[in-house]
């Protein structure tokens, strides 16, 4: 039973970054901008917030009120992701650039910048930022009940924050004037423009929300990975894009999709202790096989869902008033 609880607990932890980042991608694409830069946004969010946590720790300030510090780190991650995403917004909205290439530029920039900065801050060759242990929510003994073990054994503040942001996202998208206008811009920007909606402004908002959520997602990923920040999020930004497609650009479906993907990721990590999984005895470095799993599953899922998926109609197309 304990192993099942641990797997479920880890699944939630790994689902959190996917959920946040995929929701971010959803806001961007619903406004009409393909955001392939999520990977880079995650890295920047993680970089800045991890540097903050490290600094707080070294200054001896974090341990006294750990969760308040983590909350600050979350806000910093969000802000830095948002600022970084402005680069994409500016290129694709103001300059009408190719969104895929613009996103690729950001994805190239982020890890390089992270390495250069950590190198500059920590000294030559020191590219890994270690996280203090107090970032984890502790105080649950191993003998607690099943649900306590699932939700609390290994948990971070990012999990409740993500739950909150999911609810806010749903309300924002479907129940507010902002959401209605944002969705209109992703489907038919000329229609939105003709009734006085400022398409550029809505798209800026969409991309910046994706930066906000992507930045937090980057921190959540680094917390989940557990070994500190090393200038990479291992393709999670792209997995989140797949989660978004699988979730059909809808918040609740995205929640389901991210849990599903996270489960595959976690099953790989626990492979040796899960009795019902093949352990590939005789195969060296079999962990690679399990590390491959989420990517293969993504491929298969995309193939099966691509026919049914319905992307926002105007995504990827720069808005040009003259074209009708």
């Amino acid at each position: 039973m304990n192993i099942i609880a641990d797997v479920l607990g880890s699944t939630i932890i790994f689902a959190v970054p996917l959920l946040l980042v995929a929701l971010g991608g959803m806001f961007s694409e619903r406004s009409g901008i393909v955001n392939i830069a999520l990977e880079g946004i995650m890295i920047i969010g993680a970089l800045v917030s991890c540097l903050f946590l490290k600094t707080a720790n070294e200054a001896g300030r974090g341990a006294s009120s750990p969760q308040l510090t983590v909350l600050l780190a979350i806000l910093i991650a969000a802000a830095s992701g948002m600022i970084f995403s402005l680069l994409l917004a500016f290129a694709s909205i103001k300059l009408k650039a190719d969104q895929t290439i613009g996103g690729t530029a950001l994805n190239t920039l982020a890890p390089a910048f992270a390495i250069v900065l950590t190198w500059a801050v920590q000294g030559q060759g020191q590219t890994n930022i270690m996280l203090p242990t107090w970032v984890r929510i502790s105080g649950i003994s191993a003998e607690s009940g099943f649900f306590a073990r699932v939700f609390l054994k290994n948990s971070y503040l990012t999990t409740p924050v993500a739950a909150l942001l999911l609810i806010v996202s749903i309300i924002l998208l479907y129940k507010t004037r902002f959401g209605l206008r944002l969705r209109a811009c992703g489907e038919h920007p000329h229609a939105a423009d003709s009734v006085g909606v400022n398409v550029a402004r809505m798209r800026y908002a969409g991309v910046m929300i994706s930066g906000f959520l992507g930045g937090i997602g980057g921190l959540a990923f680094t917390l989940a990975a557990g070994s500190g920040f090393s200038s990479t999020v291992a393709g999670y930004g792209f997995l989140a894009l797949a989660v978004m497609i699988f979730g059909n650009w809808k918040p609740l479906n995205i929640l389901g999709a991210s849990l599903f993907f996270a489960l595959f990721k976690v099953v790989g990590n626990y492979a040796s202790s899960l009795p019902f999984l093949p352990d590939f005895t005789g195969v060296k470095s079999s962990t690679y096989i399990y590390q491959m799993l989420p990517y293969i599953v993504t491929m298969i899922i995309l193939i099966f869902t691509s026919k049914k998926s319905r992307a926002p109609k105007a995504e990827g197309i720069p808005y040009d008033k003259g074209q009708r």
Binding site: K175, R177, A184, E187, H190, A191
Partner: peptide, 30 residues
């Protein structure tokens, strides 16, 4: 203006299309 190519969002309802741009809001919600 009624445009030659209708400026309507396909996946929205008739009502949503009519109010788009002049949405009535109460307490911040539609």
């Amino acid at each position: 203006m009624v445009h030659q190519h209708f400026k309507l969002v396909d996946v929205f309802t008739v009502l949503d299309n009519i109010i788009l741009g002049v949405e009535p809001v109460r307490n911040g919600f539609l």
